[in-house]
């Protein structure tokens, strides 16, 4: 199996490596570069958990080879918060709205929403929901993700469709 030297900018810092042509970007990020925040949920491009941002686009890192990312700028979940630890607005919206439970699908969800809202883009609620239809979450029933989307699109989140107060 041929090996290739690649250099990828990951979360703003250059990372070089030698990879077999068949190695996925997801495995390169996790195993070679140590960014284990990228999670592999299905390895066939359906669940969306492994989504990272490659040159500004949300990409499934299980469907992209590491060699294809040579020279690219990759942002993973680890690279979204500010250096002082301040959450990215998508991370904050997720936290504020209890949009995660086990957290396994979360990095991909956050990366997709971060890519779509980058550079002050203003996607509509429907656009973000359509994008989220490519992410599987087995825990939340997507309730908090819907609320986070409302927060990101400047709408009232509706904490929950409540009828009366809890005991």
């Amino acid at each position: 199996m041929s090996e290739h030297a690649i250099e990828v900018t990951i979360n703003g810092r250059p990372v070089s490596g030698r990879v077999e042509a068949r190695k996925t970007l997801g495995d390169f990020l996790r195993v070679d570069a140590g960014f284990t925040g990228t999670h592999l949920g299905c390895e066939h491009g359906v669940c969306g958990a492994c989504t990272v941002i490659v040159d500004g686009l949300a990409v499934r890192s299980c469907l992209m080879l590491a060699v294809q990312a040579d020279g690219a700028e990759v942002t993973t979940i680890e690279g979204l918060a500010a250096e002082d630890g301040t959450f990215h607005p998508v991370q904050q919206a997720m936290r504020d709205n209890h949009a995660l439970q086990c957290g396994f699908c979360t990095p991909g969800v956050v990366c997709t929403m971060a890519a779509l809202t980058a550079d002050d883009a203003k996607p509509s609620e429907d656009q973000l929901i359509a994008a989220m239809s490519g992410h599987l979450c087995r825990c939340t029933g997507y309730q908090g993700i819907r609320r986070a989307i409302r927060q990101l699109t400047g709408q009232p989140t509706g904490v929950a469709a409540d009828h009366g107060e809890h005991a």
Binding site: S133, Y142, Q143, A160, H163, E165, A167
Partner: peptide
């Protein structure tokens, strides 16, 4: 598996 487009907003009535 159900996706976000398959699941509605649930309404809660607290009978605790």
């Amino acid at each position: 598996l159900p996706a976000i487009t398959d699941v509605p907003d649930f309404e809660y009535i607290h009978s605790n």
